[in-house]
Amino acid sequence: MLAKRIIPCLDIRNGQTVKGINFVDIKEVGDPVELAAKYAADGADELCFLDITATHEGRKTFVELVKRIAAHINIPFTVGGGISELGDAEKLLAAGADKISINSSAVRNPKLIDDLALNFGSQFVVVAVDARGDENEHWTVTVNGGRIPTDKELFSWAKEAEDRGAGEILFTSMNHDGTKNGFANKELSKMADMLKIPIIASGGAGAEEHFVDVFTKGKADAGLAASIFHYNEIPIPVLKKYLKDKGIVVR
């Protein structure tokens, strides 16, 4: 059986791992390669690195970092942040990234998904979708960390991304992100019934049982989280054992 994946996500600024809450009080806390190696040794199934650097120099540093990650880490990893054209993706592929994640740039220019899939294969293209639901359960796609609403609706956008050649959807519910009350299982499940590509769930992880729910009720293929792993609230080996005991297939 295909195992459910656990994916720690690392935010990177100027080549360093950073930790912060809602972009406030961001602190640089060390070498991403060291942290990534620890997660890989702990049993993480994949890793995700998001570049939150704004400057040109910082972007170059990120590409150098991706090379170091590729040299040291023996599991697949996705990189994202600031990829808006084929050339950006090509640099990251050449540096050794297994997949790239695009978000705002895909919303602005959906054809980017087609171009990336055509040039590098669907397996290389993760489309990240941040969305917020209102009281009528209408889910609006947002950009810039959930701050700016767009005219796109979550489910139709996810389907469009699949049709254009996305290999995976990384869905973050802005309603759940940071709450630690569990993932958006209802929406994830609806999406899983609609799409033929794997779905990575993000936003809301706070306890071991949230991962059981996201894989059963939410029908997700992978669960992504940041703070619970960074602050060692749930060590990966503990989480994996818990999932196994609950009958979830994990490696």
């Binding site: 295909l2 669907s122 033929k196 590509i197 794997p198 293929d221």
Partner: peptide, 13 residues
């Protein structure tokens, strides 16, 4: 439960 996805992506025995 749900559609088995293609591609086959991830860890398998």
């Amino acid at each position: 439960e749900y559609i088995t996805k293609v591609p086959h992506m991830g860890w398998n025995a």
